[in-house]
Design a protein around this nucleic acid. Structure first.
Lengths: 177, 177
DNA sequence: TGAGCATATATCAATTTGGCATATAGCAAA
DNA sequence: TTTGCTATATGCCAAATTGATATATGCTCA
C-alpha cells in the first residue's frame, strides 16, 4: 500500500492539510501503525490532486504559508475503496531495541536498564495516546478494532518489560523482605 | 541504527555471505524485528570491508557465483560495541492490516475475514519460527529476552484476533449450542 | 530578550526497497 | 520430457521514502 492510499484514507475521515495529516500520523489514532514524512506526504497530495482524487482549497493565513486544505472527491472515495480491497501486506516491524537486547551480555547493565526503560516509556506513551483517542470519542467499529489490537499487543509488551526490570533489581527486592 | 551495524551484529554470531545474512533476516531469529533487502545488504558489506571492519573470503562454487564469506575483524567488533551503545530509536511498526481494519464498515465481510485470517496466519508463522529457533539451541541471554518479548506480543495479538474471528461466526456458535 | 516550539509548505541528498538480470542445478508436475 | 518452480548467489537500478534543512512568523516561558 502506498502513501497515496494512506492520505486518501485519512482524508476520508476529515479534510486536512499536509501538516495536519502528518500530525494525525504522529499523534493520532494512526500513530501506532503508520509512519510517513513530509517528503512523502506533500508529493502524494499533489499527485492525488492531479489525478482528481482530492480537491484543494487554500486558506489564507497571516505570517504563514497558505494552508492547503485537501478534501476527497467521489473518485477519491472510489479509489480508496478499491485500494483497500487487497489482502494487506505482512506487517513490518523494526526494533533497534530488540536488536540491542540481543547483545545484552556485551553491554553494561546500566545501558540495558536505560534501553528497557526507554522502550517501556514508548509503549506506555503509545497506550496513553490510544486511550486519549478513545476518550475523545470519534470511534467507529474500525477504530475500536485497531485500538483493541494495539492495546492487547502493547500491554503484553509492557508487562513483559516490567517483569524483566523487576528481575534486574534483586537487591531492592531483598532489601524489602 | 544503519544496516552496516546490523550486518556487523549478525556476523558477530557467525561468519556469513550476503545471501546467508538475508536468509537469517528472513527466516532466523532476526526475522521478527529486522527487515533488509539485498540492495542494502550487499553495499553495506562492501563498505564494511572497505572500512576494515570485516574481511572477505571467496568460496568457489560450481555453477554459481563465488560465495563471499564475511567475517568480523577486531575493529569491527569494537565498532559494533560502540554502535550498540546508543539509546535505541523508537520501534517502527507499519501495518496495512490495521489500516484496512480502520475501514471495516466500508468493506465486505468476506474480505475482512480473509484479512484477519491472513494476519493471524502471519503471527502464528512468526511464533513458530521463534519456537524453532529456540528448539535449535544457539540461545543466549539476549536471544532468550527477545524471544520472550516476541512471544508475549505475538501471542497477545493472536489471542485478540482469535476472539474477533469467533465473534464473526455467531451462526456457527448458535448451531453448536 | 532570547531560546525554543508550533504552524505551514517545500526541497533534496542519502538511504532503502523491490524487482530484475545473470547463471546453474534439482525437483515435481503436466 | 519438457516446462516451470525453487534454491543458491551476487549485483544493479529505478522508484519510493526518510530525515534534515530552508523559509517565515508568532507565541510562550524563563
Amino acid at each position: 500500500m502506498n502513501i497515496r492510499t494512506l492520505c486518501l484514507g485519512i482524508l476520508s475521515f476529515q479534510e486536512a492539510s499536509g501538516y495536519e495529516i502528518k500530525k494525525e500520523i504522529e499523534e493520532g489514532m494512526f500513530s501506532h501503525f503508520i509512519d510517513a514524512s513530509y517528503g512523502s506526504i506533500y508529493p502524494a497530495l499533489s499527485q492525488l490532486n492531479a489525478e482528481g482524487l482530492v480537491t484543494v482549497r487554500a486558506e489564507e493565513q497571516t505570517g504563514r504559508p497558505d494552508k492547503k486544505v485537501y478534501s476527497v472527491t467521489d473518485a477519491g472515495r472510489a479509489a480508496l475503496a478499491k485500494g483497500l480491497l487487497v489482502i494487506p501486506a505482512r506487517d513490518k516491524y523494526k526494533s533497534e531495541f530488540l536488536f540491542e537486547m540481543l547483545f545484552k551480555n556485551m553491554l553494561p547493565d546500566a545501558h540495558i536498564r536505560l534501553a528497557i526503560e526507554k522502550q517501556l516509556h514508548d509503549l506506555r506513551e503509545d497506550l496513553s495516546r490510544m486511550a486519549e483517542c478513545r476518550a475523545e470519542g470519534q470511534t467507529n467499529e474500525g477504530s475500536e478494532f485497531i485500538m483493541g489490537y494495539g492495546e492487547a499487543v502493547l500491554t503484553a509488551g509492557a508487562k513483559y518489560l516490567e517483569a524483566k526490570i523487576a528481575e534486574l533489581q534483586p537487591n531492592i527486592k531483598l532489601a524489602a523482605e
